[in-house]
Design a protein around this nucleic acid. Structure first.
Lengths: 211, 211
DNA sequence: CCAATAGTGTCTGTAAGACAGTATTTC
DNA sequence: GAAATACTGTCTTACAGACACTATTGG
């Protein structure tokens, strides 16, 4: 039984905006922060996006668009903000809830799209997608500022240098190893084992500490 | 001329969620951070909210709901996040874009509703409005952490103590005057005049520096 | 003079940035 | 031994927090 207002109309009887999700899927490849772009129509690159169905949440829609449009299993999409300019989409009144997700590159084998470094995008993207990429990079940097690899881009056991390289890629700048060590060390558990097979003194292996 | 897809349907022909805005309108009264609540139906308090019309932006809808439901002229509503649980509204599928606005108490004379301190709300609010209030307080505190009264709750000229009292109300804790002074002083311009009529040594008056 | 508020100098602890030294591996 | 990388001690600088002292008003 659907709800009716005093004039006998249901909610859906009133004209209302459509809602889309656009997802900036980030990863780290070759020590650079990259975003997965998707070819939209002819000459324009865009983020994967879709309309939100009436029976799914935003997160479900975000995971679905990654699966359907770029063949990737997402991890944990986060909302950035709503883009709601009146004429941003010429098909009608559409607001888009921008999302970001950050996954290890192993998730991207066989992905349908193009990975581009976030600081060297191939020309302006469709809609307001340049602004979404910018917001997603800010989100990722805030996420990696204080905590050791919260999105698990490196495997469960890692050396401090491996961890540092991932943080440098996300933050987009070099870090000093002694400062980095001091910031991270008390959020890590040593495994007692050492890395093997590299030149130089073997490094200790760590795990993320259970918070 | 409306856009049609390959099966001849316009966007609005597909069932899609309705979009609402809910606005936490904050102010500072008696050195406490307060939120304006609105009576919804019987026994439940709620934030003012409305459906977004097809021809208005989120900001316009947020300003409209303040005007229509609580008779307040808003200042600059900011998005917090979208609440999108599938059955959060029993009238149908509705997502709500939570907003926050922070205005001086002079805007609230004649407001239609009840001002309550954010840390002493009268029981659980309707829908997910408790979470919206919590997010709006976090937003306000971040806004006031580093900058002198960015929402202009005090008048154009003020003493450091007046400024500090407003910051303490927003942040919900006492501050030390010497630390506070050092944080703010280089973002202020002295006017060269002194406050008058108070007990004790007259204080210098300041203006917000042009950033 | 007393109470009250304004304004400022200084000490301490913490942490970042920078530098340099020692340690342990491969080749 | 040489090269390479891991690890750590220490110095400097900056700044927050805390304390205390001086300054200037009304009563």
């Amino acid at each position: 039984m659907t709800w009716r207002d005093s004039s006998g109309r249901a909610l859906a009887d009133y004209p209302h905006p459509s809602v889309a999700v656009d997802v900036a899927l980030l990863s780290v490849v070759d020590e650079r922060l990259v975003v997965l772009l998707h070819r939209r129509e002819e000459a324009r690159w865009a983020l994967p996006g879709t309309f939100v169905r009436i029976d799914e949440t935003l997160e479900q829609a975000a995971l679905r668009v990654l699966r359907e449009k770029v063949a990737v299993i997402g991890e944990r999409p986060e909302q950035l903000r709503v883009f709601d300019a009146l004429h941003r989409d010429d098909r009608g009144r559409v607001m888009s809830v921008a999302h970001v997700d950050l996954v290890p590159p192993s998730r991207l084998v066989g992905a349908d799209g193009r990975l581009e470094p976030v600081d060297a995008l191939p020309g302006p993207l469709a809609f307001d997608h340049d602004a979404i990429v910018e917001a997603s990079v800010s989100w990722a940097r805030a996420e990696y500022r204080d905590r050791p690899d919260p999105r698990r881009l490196v495997s469960d056991e890692f050396t401090l240098l491996e961890l540092q390289r991932v943080h440098e890629a996300v933050l987009g700048r070099r870090l000093q190893k002694d400062t980095f060590r001091r910031q991270m060390i008390d959020q890590l558990d040593g495994t007692g084992t050492l890395s093997r097979g590299t030149v130089g003194k073997p490094a200790r292996l760590y795990r993320r500490a259970a918070t």
